Simulated scan of single mutants.
Amino acid sequence: MSHPADAARPAPGTADPSWTFLTHHGHVLLAVARLPDARVADIAARVGISPGATLAILKDLEQAGYVHRRRVGRRTHYTADPHRHFRHPADAAHQIGELLAIFAAAPRRS
Rank of each mutant, 00 (worst) to 15 (best):
H27P: 01
H27W: 14
H27F: 11
V28C: 04
L29S: 04
L29W: 03
L29P: 02
L29V: 06
L29M: 14
L30T: 09
L30I: 12
L30Q: 10
L30Y: 05
L30H: 08
A31V: 03
V32H: 04
V32D: 02
V32Q: 03
V32T: 04
A33E: 02
A33W: 01
A33S: 11
A33F: 00
A33M: 00
A33I: 02
R34T: 05
R34N: 02
R34E: 08
R34C: 00
R34F: 00
R34Q: 04
L35F: 13
L35W: 12
L35V: 08
L35C: 10
P36C: 07
P36N: 07
P36T: 05
P36Q: 04
P36G: 05
D37Y: 09
D37E: 11
A38V: 10
A38N: 03
A38E: 03
R39S: 06
V40I: 13
A41N: 08
A41D: 11
D42T: 14
D42W: 02
D42Q: 14
D42L: 01
D42N: 07
D42F: 03
A44C: 13
A44F: 13
A44G: 11
A45C: 03
A45R: 14
A45G: 14
A45F: 05
A45N: 09
R46K: 11
R46S: 12
R46A: 14
R46W: 12
R46C: 08
V47M: 05
V47E: 08
V47D: 09
V47G: 06
G48D: 04
G48T: 07
S50I: 03
S50A: 08
P51L: 00
P51D: 01
G52P: 01
G52L: 03
G52T: 10
G52F: 06
G52E: 08
A53H: 11
A53V: 11
A53Y: 06
A53S: 15
T54I: 09
T54C: 15
T54S: 11
T54H: 10
T54W: 07
L55C: 11
L55V: 13
L55H: 10
L55S: 15
A56D: 14
A56T: 15
A56E: 13
I57H: 04
I57P: 02
I57T: 10
L58G: 06
L58I: 05
L58K: 06
L58Q: 05
K59T: 12
K59C: 04
K59H: 10
D60S: 14
D60Y: 10
L61S: 02
L61W: 01
E62N: 10
E62W: 02
E62K: 14
E62R: 15
E62T: 15
Q63L: 09
Q63H: 07
A64I: 00
A64V: 03
A64K: 14
A64P: 05
